[in-house]
């Protein structure tokens, strides 16, 4: 299966269901005590990012924030290798050195998830410069949250993108919360597209409830970027659960959560597909069951996968053939054995 490129509403639904299902298994991985730590940021409620990802094409690249599982799934990730990475296992995408917040795969154009808010944004500027200089027609997309809308490096990067007419897109997934602070408690003005337009970018705000509308809006922005008009998308969604696994969301009310979760992009699309006669309930149930089986298998794969060998610790600090760090133990042994010789 290939999940890249624009392939119609049923495919978008399938991708969203895969994201939801994967994230639910990540939660289970944690509950079972099999995840590497608790810094797991689920994107449940944000699945319509699949519409942006489907507007990208093969060869396009992207960076993500720490809540990026869904984006990578939508760009073709293997859930088994993802889940292994989240569990810190040797066969994960980064051999268990990166984890949930630093997953990457150059083959799929994933230039890296980032655990510094806004940290991955300027990397698309460099990628865009490279594509521009080589005349490649590729686009690079930075995905980040509404928290990064208040980081200075975003605006430095937007300015460079507009100045140099780079093939890049800034995609804010506005899930209403930067950790525990609601967006209206961290921004004086919430019209984020206006900020982008002020820098000379094309900018849109799109309701994340309807993935097809997201896809249509994103297609225009991504195509513009490919033609030297960098753009910005703010995808308006609601983060269904806490910031990370240990967060029980004491900073918001049950009423707010209930209202937010009522805007469920997966259920909305499911209903829309059925209502329009694109897929009947049996077809959709079949997709859901296939996806559940796929993600169950990914979870069990990660639980059973082997941890990395201890001696890979010193690999890849530097490039191939370069001097490696000296292990502390061998240094101590050298010093004390010589001193006693």
């Amino acid at each position: 299966m290939s999940f890249g490129d624009n392939q119609g509403p049923l495919r978008l639904y399938t991708t969203m269901r895969r994201i939801r299902s994967f994230e639910e298994r990540v939660g289970e991985l944690f509950v079972r005590g099999e995840s590497a730590g608790s810094m797991l940021h689920l994107s449940i409620g944000e699945e319509s990012v699949a519409g942006v990802c489907a507007a990208m094409t093969e060869g396009d690249t992207f960076t993500t924030h720490h809540r990026g599982h869904g984006i990578f799934i939508a760009r073709g990730a293997d859930p088994k290798r993802m889940m292994s990475e989240i569990a810190g296992k040797a066969d994960g995408y980064c051999h268990g050195k990166g984890g949930s917040m630093h997953i990457a795969d150059m083959g799929l154009g994933h230039l890296g998830a980032n655990a510094i808010v806004g940290g991955g944004i300027p990397h698309i500027i460099g990628a865009g410069l490279a594509y521009r200089n080589r005349g490649e027609g590729r686009v690079s997309v930075a995905f980040f949250g509404d928290g990064a809308m208040q980081q200075g490096i975003l605006y430095e990067s937007m300015n460079m993108a507009a100045l140099w007419k780079l093939p890049v897109v800034f995609c804010c997934i506005n899930n209403q919360y930067g950790m525990g602070t609601r967006v209206d408690r961290s921004a004086g003005r919430l019209a984020f597209d206006e900020r982008a337009r002020a820098f000379g970018l094309d900018g849109v705000v799109v309701d994340g409830l309807d993935v097809e509308a997201v896809n249509a809006a994103a297609a225009g922005i991504v195509d513009g970027a490919r033609n030297g008009r960098p753009g910005f998308i703010s995808l308006e969604v609601f983060r269904f659960f806490g910031h990370a696994r240990m967060d029980k969301s004491p900073y918001r009310s049950e009423e707010e959560e209930k209202a937010g979760r009522a805007k469920d992009p997966v259920l909305f699309t499911r209903g829309s597909l059925a209502a329009r006669g694109i897929a009947d309930a049996a077809t959709l149930d079949g997709i859901d069951a296939d996806v559940a089986a796929e993600m169950d298998a990914a979870l069990e794969h990660a639980v059973k996968a082997a941890p990395p060998a201890l001696d890979i610790m010193f690999d890849d600090v530097y490039g191939p053939g370069e001097p490696r760090p000296t292990p502390v133990r061998s240094r101590i042994a050298d010093i004390l054995s010589e001193a006693r010789a």
Binding site: L111, P122, G126, L129, A130, Y131, E156
Partner: peptide, 28 residues
């Protein structure tokens, strides 16, 4: 000017852009 690039006074993004460029086949 495509190889000797005058930038705005934006040090974090200059270094960040260099990181992305280095990951994309340039040697900044």
């Amino acid at each position: 000017a495509n190889r000797v690039i005058d930038t705005p006074i934006s040090e974090p993004a200059i270094i960040g852009a260099a990181v992305g460029a280095a990951m994309s086949g340039l040697r900044p």
